[in-house]
Simulated scan of single mutants.
Amino acid sequence: MSPARTHYEVLGITRDASLAEVKTAYRRAARTTHPDQGGDAAAFRVVSLAYQTLRDPVSRAAYDRSYGTSSAYQVPASDARAAARSTPRTEPAGGRRPTATDSVRYVPAFSSTPTPVLTETVASRQIHGAPRKRGLFTPQSRLAREAGTVRLLSGRILPHVPAARLVNGLHSPAGRGFIDHVVLCGYRLALVNSMVLPRGVYRWDGTTLHQGGKAIDPPRMASLVRGMQEAFPELNVTGWTVVHSPDDNLHEPVIDYARGADPASASLTHVVNAANLVRELKMFLGTGPSPNVVDVPLLSRLIGGMY
């Protein structure tokens, strides 16, 4: 399948383009695609749809929350082949497999893109967004918990994986619920939510945490993982719930695993303490096929999904 283009790519503008810039880009694109000017009618319809969506703040916000999947169209195969030929190889010299410590490469390269969907300054930031309120009544405990997760990821993951990009506070792709954090690295995406439990030993059976006859349900993430996988079919998506201790001890609480429920399983979601999250995420992100790549259009779509 040829890659899909977002409305921003259709008009050749950055995601933060003003309304005036949207109008200017539309006029420019319309002059080259309008049938009266010798253009293709189908291409003009795509340009018009992009303009109608992005000129209205409400429809633009809804489009961004959909991660740019609604009304996206497929690039013609000839254009896709041309783009592939013009995109620099992401493998290091010598044909060896890229590693997470190789120099960061942006795809497409900024030097080859007249108007990228993100500026290089924005794409080079490792952290985007911060924990925020969801309405009038937001428990401070949630904000504090999410801030703790940001500190964990930014302090113990990002320095070791330079191409990783942390995006905080996203809408669910299904339109209901939220994702606290995502980490994009190459073509792997980790969804991370969190909870706080007292010190102790808990057993995870793949569905529920158990301690002393008490059952505790972690955040339900399977639907979020499936939704993001549908929105981003080019990505390998996995969900993680990190269980913090009240005193920020990375090794507490201790989580024991039933057979087949450990982080090495093929499950869509995993439950881990902070120390295990650091270890497992480094492995998940760093062993992907392109762990030194920042795919700029994918990052742009994720940033657009922030609330």
Score class of each variant (00 low, 15 high):
112 S>H: 14
263 P>E: 07
189 L>C: 05
18 S>N: 14
61 A>P: 02
287 T>M: 06
56 D>S: 04
231 A>D: 10
262 D>C: 08
222 A>K: 14
156 R>S: 10
63 Y>Q: 03
301 R>H: 07
56 D>F: 04
47 V>M: 06
131 P>N: 02
165 R>Y: 05
124 S>H: 11
157 I>N: 02
52 Q>G: 10
12 G>V: 14
276 N>Y: 05
3 P>Y: 13
27 R>D: 15
295 D>H: 13
44 F>Y: 15
223 S>T: 15
198 P>M: 10
184 L>P: 05
189 L>A: 03
139 P>D: 08
196 V>N: 10
186 G>R: 03
293 V>T: 09
98 P>K: 04
168 N>K: 00
3 P>S: 10
36 D>Y: 12
211 Q>H: 13
85 R>G: 06
251 H>M: 00
118 L>Y: 11
40 D>L: 04
45 R>Y: 05
298 L>Y: 01
161 V>Y: 00
279 R>V: 03
123 A>F: 04
192 V>L: 01
46 V>L: 08
126 Q>D: 03
114 P>L: 15
17 A>H: 14
303 I>E: 04
137 F>T: 09
94 G>F: 13
57 P>L: 07
40 D>R: 10
190 A>P: 00
260 G>R: 11
94 G>K: 12
41 A>P: 13
262 D>Q: 08
205 D>K: 08
256 D>V: 15
152 L>W: 07
104 V>F: 10
227 G>C: 13
204 W>C: 07
50 A>I: 02
24 T>F: 04
135 G>Q: 02
300 S>N: 07
200 G>K: 12
270 H>V: 05
249 N>I: 03
103 S>R: 12
233 P>S: 15
275 A>W: 05
229 Q>V: 09
195 M>K: 04
197 L>S: 09
160 H>E: 03
87 T>M: 12
23 K>C: 11
128 H>S: 06
9 E>S: 07
36 D>P: 05
70 S>Q: 08
234 E>Y: 01
198 P>G: 11
97 R>M: 06
95 G>L: 15
77 A>N: 11
214 K>N: 09
207 T>P: 00
268 L>R: 03
105 R>P: 03
80 A>V: 06
183 V>A: 01
34 H>T: 05
248 D>E: 10
27 R>E: 15
55 R>S: 06
15 R>L: 12
261 A>I: 02
186 G>F: 09
149 T>N: 04
205 D>A: 12
261 A>K: 04
126 Q>T: 11
5 R>S: 12
151 R>S: 14
159 P>H: 08
237 V>C: 10
88 P>N: 11
12 G>N: 12
236 N>T: 09
225 V>H: 06
81 R>L: 14
63 Y>V: 03
31 R>E: 11
164 A>Y: 02
